[in-house]
């Protein structure tokens, strides 16, 4: 039988690849009776939700709105764009 240490690894890998049927079954059965691994699985999914939201906030310009490209950088980038448009 797999211990929590290996189960937690399966939890993580289930976020990355399709588990084999056997792996999936072992994971399901363990999670059904182990509160700690269940808690870990929830946290891992929550981390994904939180990270995506973090990214969304950044992309929407909701955070650090005082952070801006410096005028020098802006000019340099404009110039690089003009150069490569030629």
């Amino acid at each position: 039988m797999l211990r929590c240490r290996e189960i937690s690894k399966l939890v993580s890998e289930s976020m990355e690849r399709k588990l084999s049927f056997r792996e999936w079954l072992v994971l399901r059965m363990h999670l059904a009776m182990c509160g700690l691994c269940n808690g870990f699985a929830k946290q891992v999914r929550f981390l994904r939700t939180a990270a995506r939201r973090n990214s969304q906030r950044l992309a929407d310009g909701q955070t650090d709105s005082d952070v801006k490209l410096s005028p020098e950088a802006r000019a340099r980038i404009e110039a690089a764009l003009r150069d490569s448009a030629k």
Partner: peptide, 28 residues
């Protein structure tokens, strides 16, 4: 582009790389 998206892209790059010079480079 630079006017409309420059700051948002820079902010994203800076948050990710935590290095202003690298962030400017990546935006360019």
């Amino acid at each position: 582009w630079v006017e409309r998206h420059g700051d948002v892209l820079y902010r994203y790059a800076l948050a990710r790389l935590r290095d202003p010079e690298a962030a400017e480079e990546v935006v360019q």
